[in-house]
């Protein structure tokens, strides 16, 4: 953003030097009783301040403009352009992540819901055949019943074969459905990079705005409510906590929750 010589909290060195030399001049003029010259100096001081102020406001405006422009990432190749044409900004990209995870989760659950009754049916039939088979081994079965049993066993073998194939297919599809992690991960990384860039730009803007405040002698009064965020748990949730293990105010798992609740008499 081209303001490397413009350190945080520091005024423009040129402006500072001018301010110092003219202030000294003014003091000498007042000491010497030359009030006409002193008034001229005060005017000059005002001019210096105004010019520097305009310069700072100009810089601020330019940086703001740049920051807004930088918020858009330029596609580097055809593939990215293709991707970006569908999602032109960060929020679109994050919606894409939500969509991807949603469809992957639903696809997986569809397949699981299909497979579960199949395994259940196989288990039940196997259990039934086992008890029939044991009856046969105990010689408690008539010839007719045995013929029926052998037909059923043959049918069972066939269905085990086809159903296993279907279940295996579902499992490999579930495996494939996990590709969302890769895809969404990449998008999230891009958005994270973007957010970091924007944060940097905003920080520069804050620093610049503080220069303007210094020139105009503005002192912002913050409300107490703004300074101290409400620490009590509010009705609105906060979503998942990151780095829970390293934080004192956050539980690190269900065991912690149970401990805390039992300490409250639950």
């Amino acid at each position: 953003m081209g303001n490397g010589n413009h350190e945080k909290g520091q005024l423009d060195p040129e402006f500072e030097a001018q301010l110092k030399s003219q202030a000294e001049e003014l003091k000498q003029q007042v000491d010497a009783g030359d009030y006409a010259a002193a008034m001229r100096s005060i005017n000059d001081l005002n001019d210096v301040r105004d010019q520097s102020l305009y310069r700072e406001v100009g810089r601020l405006t330019r940086s703001l403009h740049e920051a807004i422009r930088n918020f858009q990432i330029d596609p580097q190749n055809a593939e990215q352009r293709e991707a970006l044409s569908k999602m032109t900004d960060a929020s679109d990209r994050l919606s894409y992540v939500v969509e991807m995870t949603d469809s992957a989760a639903n696809r997986t659950m569809d397949l699981v819901e299909e497979a579960m009754p199949k395994t259940n049916a196989l288990k039940e039939e196997a259990g039934h055949l086992l008890s029939e088979w044991q009856r046969f081994r105990r010689r408690e079965m008539s010839a007719d019943e045995f013929r029926e049993l052998s037909r059923r066993v043959e049918h069972f073998f066939a269905s085990v074969s086809t159903e296993s194939e279907t279940i295996y297919g579902s499992l490999s599809e579930i495996l494939l459905a996990q590709d969302f992690q890769d895809l969404t991960g990449q998008v999230i990384q891009k958005v994270t990079t973007l957010v970091k860039e924007v944060e940097e730009h905003l920080l520069h803007l804050v620093v610049m705005a503080s220069h303007v405040d210094q020139m105009t002698g503005t002192d912002h009064q913050l409300d107490d409510s703004e300074k101290t965020p409400d620490k009590k748990a509010s009705g609105k949730g906060e979503g998942p906590q990151l780095n829970a293990e390293e934080r004192e105010d956050v539980v690190s798992g269900q065991d912690d929750v149970d401990d805390l609740l039992s300490s409250l008499g639950f």
Partner: peptide
């Protein structure tokens, strides 16, 4: 819920929740 702050769990308990499971 994914809400995992101690304050929040205490607040839920005080509000009369019967059980709390973290995601």
């Amino acid at each position: 819920t994914a809400e995992a702050k101690r304050d929040q769990i205490v607040a839920a308990a005080q509000a009369g929740v019967n059980g709390y499971v973290v995601k």
